[in-house]
Design a protein around this nucleic acid. Structure first.
Lengths: 237, 237
DNA sequence: CGATAGGTTGACTTCAATCAAACGACGTGG
DNA sequence: CCACGTCGTTTGATTGAAGTCAACCTATCG
């Protein structure tokens, strides 16, 4: 199941990371993990395959190499909350306390690098700088979580959708961030934004009708970034 | 403004902390901070006084000695999201990255212990165990934030209110957790739960009419914990 | 007392959820 | 190659939960 391989391209992409921008889970540069490289196990997962389940004892944490992963919390009656979408370079399940407090599933076929939590902690114990970066990474995720609380608690449906598109654009942007590849379904988006599939659809349609975005298969093009920005309902600072 | 004093009672209360239960921000026992004691500055804040503002460079982090603090995020148009209520023993602003990403205000008159972030980081660099606990504390807050995302994204108004009461009961319970002192206003609760003041009121009234709780001034008594539990809409695991 | 701030309740509105149907893309097999 | 089924998406009609607007109640304090 696990075959070792190298991912050179990814490394350079992550090296250009600047604090405050882009994916919060990618604060650690890959080259920082270089000493850990030999501890990593490569693995893959098929679309919709569960990587780990909520409640399991947490042995491993992961980095996305390619594809997209979602972290999910479920309520007893089936209501679902998608916590994060993880993209290449992002880490997840890093901040575990004994057991996973969410499950992780592959949105698309994914390649992952897997580390044992024990090895990471041990390494952190020896390397202060590494430990500090690990903490900072968790802090960055907490900061993102706080931003999402404003979204879930106080933003309207259309604001949530606009914010989401801007967020994704910032994370996946290859060039100016005009073309976004959205690997997840409307249902995933809805469960991420605290909405229903229909409301997400209508919101996207409305943005398309206003000429703010263009929709084409799983791809979305941002035509009017300024309009999208003001539709997102800015938070102070 | 800053007068040094000791808080013996608090220390023993925190010493009885068990992982998984109670306030996520209180994972660090006070005695762990004992070596830092001399680095702490005591301070107070009046009701509704701002302790720090979002966007300010983050020099300090804090521990609540007595009273209640709220952390707040604001949108441009005034919409407000209350992130956390901090109670005695709880730490806040610990996970900062350069600048505060929320503001903190006193809900009641509060006494605080203040540490410089620099001192904490320096101490963490020297003490592996301390560093690890610092990371765990941030991880615990992240875990709590994830739980709140389910609440904000997927729970109904009455479920949010019931969950909130249970959460507070667990944190402030002196005995069996039957009597809860709620130091914050309905407005604060509403902004914490992503609701309006009126909806919070109606939800509480409904619980009172069903005989689940009793309301008396700022105090709430849980009469039927089982009913409150099932009204909270349990999350898996 | 009266003033003020916070809390509660009621009437009405609205935004998003629900229910329902049709559409489009894609893959399989006849 | 086209018919068919499946899955995800889109759109429309209707409902309902929570928001808004407004009035009144209740404490606390000068």
């Amino acid at each position: 199941m696990s075959v070792a391989f190298q991912v050179i391209a990814q490394r350079s992409a992550l090296a250009s990371y600047q604090p405050g921008a882009g994916s919060p889970a990618a604060i650690l540069r890959t080259d920082l993990l270089a000493p850990l490289e030999r501890l990593a196990t490569s693995m893959t997962a098929e679309r919709n395959q569960e990587i780990f389940a909520e409640g399991e004892p947490a042995k491993y944490c992961y980095q996305v190499v390619s594809g997209c992963v979602r972290t999910v919390k479920l309520m007893e009656d089936g209501r679902r909350q998608v916590d994060e979408f993880l993209l290449p370079g992002d880490f997840f399940a890093l901040e575990v306390l004994g057991e996973y407090n969410f499950s992780a599933e592959a949105v698309t076929p994914v390649r992952l690098r897997r580390y044992t939590c024990a090895a990471l902690e041990e390494f952190a114990d020896r390397d202060r700088d590494f430990a500090r970066r690990l903490w900072r990474l968790t802090a960055g995720q907490l900061r993102a979580a706080r931003e999402r609380m404003v979204l879930l608690g106080r933003k309207t449906a259309s604001e949530r959708i606009a914010s989401f598109l801007l967020d994704m654009a910032e994370r996946v942007s290859t060039d100016g961030g005009e073309r976004i590849d959205l690997p997840m379904s409307r249902g995933d988006m809805a469960d991420h934004l605290g909405l229903t599939i229909e409301t997400v659809c209508r919101g996207l349609t409305q943005l398309r009708r206003h000429g703010t975005i263009a929709i084409d298969r799983g791809q979305i093009a941002i035509l009017d970034a300024r309009a999208l920005g003001s539709a997102g309902g800015r938070v102070l600072h």
